[in-house]
């Protein structure tokens, strides 16, 4: 699975490399940034209500201004770090799917093959067996993230030059622009995506414990993962949508100003996710430990 992950990264890098023209040095980048800022400022002035988007625009304006003031030219085209950043969300989706397959197979396929019987007649509680399967799946996800980081860095370096490795990352924190490390910024993004990863993997575990059928649980969870956005658009006009699991899965919405509803915040989403998580864990545990094994 990790090899497929690396293969996808390589293909992604190749496509990006072939589709982007050689970056031209832009001697007038300061003027361009200033123009961009003007446009965004206009948007900001006309806009009412959408605080999240306003905040996002404010931070973009401040970062552009910072670049002009400190003579930090924005990188042109794809660089090592922008490749790492761009590959994040799609590759984490791939990792989610792989981990869902791992956790579903590890729990449910033992029922399909019948090996669960020989496993459960050891002096080990069913809770311990379920927990070790769950932890193993999460460790697999963590390992995949580390591999993703190292290799997207390496592949990004090989394709787009290691020269970009010491580029600084600018972030807008508490009304001020700060120079931070890219590594930190990327792992922050991994962490925000990680919440969704962890929830979907847990859900897959619950479905696997419930149906005791690997294929069903893989299919159903991946369907929910892929279809959640469509379902969300259909129901997004209702007030209660903010309590729906899928509305809270994407924590990056609070980072890039695309949050679903005004009355939601990072804290709110974490709270909702925590409630779902507890329900999932209790259900999964009940399904796995309390039912007869007929496999």
């Amino acid at each position: 699975m990790l090899i497929i992950l690396l293969g996808l990264l390589l293909v992604g890098a190749l496509i990006t490399k072939l589709n982007t023209p050689e970056p031209k040095a832009d001697s007038q980048w300061k003027q361009h940034l200033a123009q961009e800022n003007q446009g965004m400022q206009q948007n900001l002035n006309q806009m009412k209500g959408n605080d999240a988007y306003a905040n996002y625009l404010k931070s973009e304006i401040a970062i552009n201004q910072y670049r002009i003031d400190h003579n930090l030219e924005p990188a042109q085209g794809t660089t090592l770090w922008s490749f790492v950043e761009d590959s994040t969300s799609i590759m984490i989706l791939v990792i989610s799917i792989f981990t869902i397959i791992v956790v579903s197979t590890s729990i449910a396929s033992e029922f399909n093959t019948g090996t669960i019987k020989l496993l459960l007649i050891r002096p080990i509680y069913r809770t311990e067996i379920l927990l070790s399967k769950y932890i193993a799946a999460l460790l697999f996800a963590l390992l995949s993230l580390v591999v993703l980081f190292l290799f997207s860095w390496l592949i990004g370096g090989i394709f787009f030059g290691f020269g970009g490795a010491d580029e600084v990352h600018l972030s807008y924190i508490g009304g001020e622009v700060q120079e931070t490390s890219w590594t930190l910024a990327i792992w922050k993004e991994y962490l925000l995506h990680g919440a969704s990863l962890c929830m979907m993997v847990t859900l897959a575990g619950v479905i696997a414990s419930l149906f005791r059928n690997g294929g069903l649980s893989i299919g159903l969870t991946i369907f929910l993962l892929m279809g959640s956005n469509t379902i969300l658009t259909l129901i997004s006009k209702y007030e209660w949508v903010k309590y729906v699991l899928f509305a809270n899965l994407d924590l990056t919405q609070y980072d890039n100003g695309t949050q679903l509803r005004e009355d939601m915040s990072l804290g709110f989403s974490l709270g909702v996710l925590a409630v779902y998580y507890v329900i999932f864990v209790i259900c999964g545990w009940l399904f796995f430990t309390k039912r007869d094994v007929k496999a």
């Binding site: 093959t113 019948g114 090996t115 019987k117 020989l118 007649i121 050891r122 002096p123 080990i124 509680y125």
Partner: peptide
């Protein structure tokens, strides 16, 4: 006392299904 009891038992239930 599941652990104490099952510790004493070795078993095959139906077919001996092992990891193939």
């Amino acid at each position: 006392e599941f652990k104490e009891a099952i510790r004493q038992v070795g078993a095959i239930v139906e077919n001996p299904e092992m990891y193939k």
